[in-house]
């Protein structure tokens, strides 16, 4: 970055807080102590540490935050949340950043674009069947995005799971799928994009 930072536009911070449940306004009280980033199991893979992300949110660096891979590397282990000395719901904030990144159309620029793709494949199955379906999700996800991975899957672990009777060939469908679809369609109307 060649430009120096200008004053903090407050809107991005407010957007992030509004998108998050629980005590998200505690984000204001971040002490920049780094407990979250020190606790993070996938922290070393992130381009910005969670603490840095919070400083960037405060500085209004919306594009940089939503393009970063930080939230996509979150494994949802909640260590940051229980250890944060200011009781900031960090794991939930990471989920908010994921959603905002998709909505802003930025996620493909993060170097972990597989993550949203996996989530979307997974949920397509759930939306259509009511249940998830490992084999279907994995093959479709890999065929669509990572064909090499699909071959590995079919010959390696997938095969093992299959022979152990731990993988279905066809998905299970719930009885009242139309009810679920009505609920989810209504929820999507109320909940914005995606």
């Amino acid at each position: 970055m060649t430009d120096s930072l200008t004053s903090r536009p407050p809107t991005f911070y407010d957007e992030v807080v509004a998108e998050t449940l629980g005590l998200a306004e505690n984000l204001k009280t971040c002490l920049q102590c780094g407990t979250c980033s020190g606790s993070c199991p996938s922290g070393p893979d992130m381009d910005y540490s969670p603490r840095t992300i919070f400083a960037m949110i405060d500085a209004g660096m919306k594009d940089e935050v939503l393009r970063s891979n930080t939230s996509w590397y979150c494994v949802s282990c909640y260590y940051c949340t229980v250890r944060c000395p200011q009781e900031i719901p960090i794991t939930d904030l990471m989920y908010s950043l994921k959603r905002m990144s998709i909505q802003a159309g930025h996620y493909q620029e993060a170097d972990l674009d597989k993550a949203p793709e996996f989530s979307e494949t997974f949920m397509n199955f759930v939306e259509n069947n009511g249940r998830s379906f490992e084999l279907g999700i994995a093959t479709r996800y890999h065929l669509r995005y990572h064909p090499l991975g699909a071959i590995k899957l079919a010959t390696g672990m997938g095969l093992k799971l299959f022979t152990k009777g731990r993988m279905d060939i066809t998905p299970t469908k719930i009885k009242n799928i139309s009810q679920l679809k009505s609920i989810l369609n209504k929820a999507k109307e109320l909940g914005g994009a995606a």
Binding site: S119, V126, G130
Partner: peptide, 22 residues
Amino acid sequence: DDWNCCGATEYIALNKIPAFAL
């Protein structure tokens, strides 16, 4: 009876209201 998937850690990453509705 007729329960559905909870969305695991995936749905909440996509859309908040549908995730909670699910």
